[in-house]
């Protein structure tokens, strides 16, 4: 029989044609019983399957549940936007505080630059009072 004498890659091609066009789901399961277990669906196969069949898959969902999911999702997205904005503002505030601190250190350094060591104590007391 020709099918038996084909080269390996041709046998694979013929098997793919048979699997895609002529085999029933039961035939595939009979050939490989393990593939019928739902839990063994590989992640990448699932991704690929969803990419191709998302409209059919969505048709099994309840419309109200889908609407609710979209609403929740939008809410979550808005919350995440607000959250990242808050983080940005906090970061800017921290930068501002650090900058002011650095300025005050520089100012103090400038103040003591030309001062004799024995007068430093007087200047510190004065700056505390002011």
């Amino acid at each position: 029989m020709i099918a038996e004498t084909l080269l390996n890659w041709d046998k694979t091609e013929l098997a793919e044609v048979l699997a895609s066009e002529y085999a029933e789901p039961d035939d595939l399961i009979e050939a490989f019983p393990a593939i019928a277990k739902a839990g063994t669906m590989e992640e990448d196969l699932l991704e690929e399957f969803i990419e191709r069949n998302w409209k059919i898959i969505l048709s099994i969902f309840n419309v109200d549940a889908l609407l609710k999911w979209v609403e929740d999702k939008e809410l979550k997205e808005r919350w995440e936007q607000m959250h990242s904005l808050n983080i940005e503002i906090e970061h800017e505030y921290d930068e501002y505080v650090n900058e002011e601190f650095c300025k005050s250190v520089l100012y103090s350094a400038m103040l003591f630059k030309d001062t004799e060591p024995e007068n430093i104590g007087v200047l510190i007391t004065r700056s505390r009072k002011s």
């Binding site: 699997a19 085999a23 595939l28 593939i35 019928a36 063994t40 690929e48 399957f49």
Partner: peptide, 9 residues
């Protein structure tokens, strides 16, 4: 087996 599973899906 992997291809068979893909066709089954």
């Amino acid at each position: 087996e992997r291809d068979a599973r893909r066709y089954l899906f």
